[in-house]
Design a binder for these strands. Structure first.
Lengths: 230, 230
DNA sequence: AAATGTGAAGAGGTTCACAGCG
DNA sequence: CGCTGTGAACCTCTTCACATTT
């Protein structure tokens, strides 16, 4: 039981760390949320490492968490509830996010299904496609609209995040149109580097590139040593 | 015209760089292959940077390429053809890769479609699923088989790479069974850290984690400066 | 005694500046 | 003169060691 008094509950959002820590914080949030649901209330940095299968060291975890403020108690560990709350604030998981998916082939569809299953705060608010066969279909209450109507759909849907799951040749144009409609963050699955002006955040996911890391090491490092987990 | 004589054509595979360079080499291969198809035969490091939308600096490109050996000519640039060939060798793109996809929901399906469309050297050689509705279907000549038959299917199909697109709870078990069948590289879409013994390469793709980077910056860095491309 | 929080050391990758060739 | 190739400087992230607190 942590008996450190916390009168103010000053939920000031603080984060001194760097961008690269964010996916780790997200992983902590995931396992800690689960631990909370299991009835646990206190945990140590080593305990968190255990929940993560020791993929991250306890030192790294303490460094990351200390960037959020003094949330732990020396000799005791961390109270999980305030930790989860603080992580949610820093990660922006305390609010709804409206997502526009452009390109509703298997990749767009997969992404929609994936995030809808995972986090309730991520809402698929608009779906755009070019293929006539898909237009008019309804995916979980969201209609699939033609990509030509992007401006109309977006201005009505008010999305914060755009997911680009169209062929590389269309990606730049789609990105520009999304940004023109006020979208400030893009997740890009097309193997192209987008060129955009303004306060836009772009995150590229290169699936084929990930595969190439595997093929490289299989081809090159065939006579490698032991189990590698990159 | 490069008039450096190249009598031996000694295609010795060499790569002094580090793992982190591989996705960049893959990007070089992609744009250089396209440039070759357009009839270009020579290019400078700055030219490659241009093809990549200046997402990578010319210095970085020269560093990366120099890890493959002395492929350029000072004052001239790089002959594209040998460059593409050397990149293909180092990336392992000179041979076929047989891929087993476990979990053929939208994600597995998306991945299959994605890589089949992109690189002919990646062959989907086995598809495993749990859902009875999908068993027996045939995707581009590859039948969807029940996950219980994994051992039989894999021993017949002889796959080098496994793609894990099942729920997190099943991922560890699937991974172990793939490894037991001789698969030496895994691409894991499940948000779990896999624990495996032996010479296995694991690459994790955390789609929700990528989203969290966007939500973090939107929530936190709202009053940020200019266009960011992470 | 136990576990956090953190300055310092270490490791790894990128950028710089320029020597070396064509 | 132009462009590659590369040692050195620089920067960033991780790991170590330990002072600090409960």
């Amino acid at each position: 039981m942590l008996n450190r008094l916390d009168p103010t509950q000053s939920s000031a959002i603080r984060f001194d760390g760097s961008e690269i820590a964010i996916p780790r914080l997200f992983a902590y949030h995931r396992v800690l949320d689960a631990a909370l649901a299991c009835g646990k209330s206190v945990i140590t940095s080593h305990g968190i490492a255990g929940l993560l299968g020791h993929a991250i060291t306890s030192t790294q975890i303490r460094k990351d968490l200390s960037a959020l403020g003094p949330l732990g108690s020396r000799g005791q560990g961390y109270a999980i509830k305030p930790l989860v709350e603080q992580l949610a604030l820093v990660l922006g998981l305390d609010r709804d996010w409206r997502i526009a998916i452009v390109g509703f082939g298997y990749l767009g569809h997969a992404f929609a299904t994936f995030i809808a299953a995972r986090e309730e705060r991520f809402k698929v608010a608009a779906i755009l496609e070019r293929s006539p066969a898909l237009i008019g279909q309804v995916w979980q209450n969201t209609p699939v609209r033609h990509i030509n109507d992007l401006e109309n759909v977006l201005s009505a849907a008010g999305c914060n995040i755009g997911v680009i799951a169209v062929p590389a040749a269309e990606a730049q144009s789609v990105a520009e149109r999304l940004v023109a409609q006020g979208v400030r963050a893009l997740l890009n699955f097309a193997p192209t580097s987008l060129h955009l002006r303004g306060p836009v955040l772009v995150r590229n996911i290169d699936l084929a590139g990930e595969l190439s890391i595997l093929t490289h090491r299989l081809a090159f490092n065939e006579s490698s040593s032991a189990g590698y987990t990159v």
